[in-house]
Amino acid sequence: MEVKEKNSVIVELHDLTITEQKDDRFGRVVTTKSLSVDDLVNIAVSRRTDLSATTLKSAHEILKNIALEQLANGASVHFGLGYFHLNVNGVFIGDNEKWDNAKHSLSVHVTPTVELRNAVKSCKVDVRGMAASPMAVNSVTDVTSGEVNSKLTPGGGVNIIGTRIKIEGDQAGIGIKLVNETTKEEILVPTTSMLTNSPSKLSFIVPTGLVAGDYRLVISTQHSSSKVFLKKPRTYIFEYLLVVDA
Rank of each mutant, 00 (worst) to 15 (best):
V179M: 06
H104P: 02
V3F: 05
K166E: 15
L63R: 11
L217R: 09
V206D: 06
K232V: 14
S36N: 03
C123L: 14
E115P: 00
S58K: 15
I176M: 00
T17I: 12
S107N: 08
P233L: 07
V45F: 01
K232Q: 12
A67F: 08
V127P: 05
S150I: 06
E168H: 12
P199C: 07
S226N: 03
F204K: 05
I161S: 12
L106Q: 06
K6L: 14
V148E: 13
P154K: 09
T141G: 00
E186A: 15
S200F: 08
N73Q: 11
L116Q: 03
M194D: 00
H109C: 07
V88I: 13
Y83D: 13
P154F: 05
S225G: 07
G209M: 11
Q222K: 10
K98S: 13
H104E: 01
V29W: 02
R164Q: 14
S46A: 12
E2R: 10
V30R: 09
H14R: 14
V110P: 03
R164C: 10
G82L: 01
I66M: 10
S34I: 14
H104C: 01
A172T: 13
R216F: 11
T32W: 04
H109W: 07
E147R: 15
S133H: 09
E181Y: 06
G175S: 03
A212C: 01
P134G: 09
K231S: 15
R48F: 08
G155R: 04
D24S: 12
H85P: 05
E181H: 07
L106P: 00
V127N: 15
G157E: 09
A246V: 11
